[in-house]
Nucleic acid binder design. Structure first.
Lengths: 201, 201
DNA sequence: GTAGATTCCCTAACATCTTTAGGCAAAATC
DNA sequence: GATTTTGCCTAAAGATGTTAGGGAATCTAC
């Protein structure tokens, strides 16, 4: 009788979004690798099998995490790009990604997971992020047919730098990675400004 | 009596290197995620606890995999850079990384694992790879103090592109990612050639 | 308002994987 | 040839993922 746990009032209800949100907190705090159904169940205060009422298993949880991260990233990108163009836009978008990775390392890792089943939500968020890069390029002399290559370049630089920095690959050596970040974005800006002269030989 | 398994002659002996090599094969074939002590033990024909005579557990196995991959990458880099300089060297080093990722996706993934305990072998291999990038930069007008930034740029571009391509992020859309690769390396070459004009404002 | 359907969480059970403890036989050492 | 060492084994325990099925609270419909 002592076990008359009145959880009903302290815990409003459980749903897929709440579970994924908890997983996101865990990922940011302890690393994506530590996210498991067990850990999430402990965190939300239910038994593991109960989670199966809301999602289909580990894979589904990871897909939800990836979709959440990409959506948040896309939302920040939209806000950052509003009213900006050219170099300003490039810097703003790049900083969005870098700052997101710093604030939410676990989610950012999830956003980069490329082995997750593609859902419609995920596809949509991914498309938004890609479109933002394309939008930035409109401020540079990049032709329609060259755009794909430029988009891939920007994506590569952003992902590579942010990932290496987050992983500690740049150590804490002098000069700081922040200085390198400025140089890298400068270099990218320069490349894009003179893109038309790179064109197909 | 029927169980007089004469394994001794068909299986020479087991050691750490052989175990890690088997793990590398599994990683390339089925993905790094699928590599486990169980899978490796099955593949080499022993029981799981037997592996503990040769390595300390899962973490140690992963560290071994990372060290193996980085060492192989460094070996290829040395061979590719011999006798080359400037743009030739840049293209050669970049292709080494891209081709290694295509030939050995699992090992490449392991090479990029940034959450593995740093051993001396691993540290040495990592240093060799970093030194190769620095060597390439000697063919460009990059000052001593600017070198760090340029190294970080090159590392970011390579890692970002190769990872995105390996993950299928560039899809199979036209134009092919191979074309983008050429453009990206061209752009990188151009940036490095004019690096001296980027310098600190 | 109450009967029935649905929802949501539970326990039980099983498979897989990691790790530790301890045994046994072959190989190496003296 | 006796002893120590080596390398593999079985046994066992703990963690995780998944499925099956039960029971109570909530919702729906008369």
């Amino acid at each position: 009788m002592t076990g008359s746990t009145p959880r009903a009032e302290e815990r409003p209800r459980l749903n897929r979004d709440a579970i994924v949100a908890t997983a996101a907190e865990l990922a940011d705090g302890h690393g994506l690798r530590q996210v498991s159904l067990s850990a999430v169940a402990r965190a939300v205060g239910v038994r593991v099998p109960s989670l199966y009422s809301h999602l289909q298993g580990t894979t589904d949880l990871m897909a939800g995490l990836t979709a959440l991260a990409l959506t948040e990233l896309a939302d920040r990108g939209d806000r950052a790009l509003a009213g900006r163009s050219g170099r300003d836009a490039l810097v703003a978008l790049a900083d969005v990604h870098r700052n997101y990775a710093r604030e939410h390392p676990g989610r950012f890792e999830a956003a980069g997971a490329l082995d997750v089943p593609v859902t419609d939500v995920l596809q949509a968020a991914g498309a938004r992020v890609a479109e933002q890069t394309a939008a930035v390029l409109r401020g540079y002399p990049v032709s329609e047919e060259e755009q794909v290559h430029a988009v891939r370049l920007v994506a590569s630089v952003l992902r590579g730098f942010v990932e290496l920095e987050a992983g500690g690959a740049f150590g804490h050596r002098r000069p700081s990675s922040g200085e390198s970040w400025t140089r890298v974005i400068d270099a990218l800006d320069g490349t894009l400004r003179s893109w038309s002269s790179i064109g197909p030989t």
